[in-house]
């Protein structure tokens, strides 16, 4: 009985420590993700929808993890300069035009990208400011 009690306390203690000892990376991720969700609501949700579902054949969904992964380093440029032309997303063809989100700063781009690449069934980790700044230098 006493042993069980001590083990229980011990376990609780370990859990508490583990919870408070989130790595810096996790904390950074959470910050990016939660501000990203606010930015998504203000800048993207009207077109891409509450659940990233898009709008029929007019606006593509943000649920295609393969596309997002393959084009990970171009996503910042898509937002900064807009995107136009044929796309194959989630097995469907799209040919529309996304206006440039010119008013988003690089840090905001990083936050909103962290949000979309970790929502709607995607799980691709942090896209931080340094990453976005590097990607933006390579825009075509």
């Amino acid at each position: 009985m006493k042993l069980a009690f001590i083990t229980g306390i011990g376990l609780l203690f370990i859990m508490a420590v583990a919870a408070s000892c989130q790595s810096d990376e996790q904390i950074e991720f959470k910050r990016y993700y939660s501000s990203g969700s606010v930015l998504y609501l203000a800048h993207c949700q009207n077109c891409h929808g509450e659940k990233g579902e898009g709008l029929q054949a007019l606006i593509p969904p943000l649920t295609d993890s393969v596309f997002l992964k393959q084009n990970r380093s171009s996503l910042a440029c898509y937002l900064k300069n807009g995107l136009k032309g044929k796309l194959s997303i989630a097995g469907r063809e799209f040919e529309g035009e996304m206006p440039a989100a010119a008013d988003l700063s690089p840090i905001e781009v990083a936050k909103v990208l962290t949000y979309i690449t970790n929502s709607f069934g995607n799980k691709q980790g942090l896209i931080n400011l340094q990453q976005v700044q590097a990607d933006l230098k390579e825009c075509k």
């Binding site: 077109c47 929808g49 709008l55 029929q56 007019l58």
Partner: peptide, 15 residues
């Protein structure tokens, strides 16, 4: 058709 702001939401709802 090229409305970037409220039209996609309006027509998502109108559907």
């Amino acid at each position: 058709t090229t409305c970037p702001s409220i039209c996609p939401v309006m027509h998502r709802n109108m559907l």
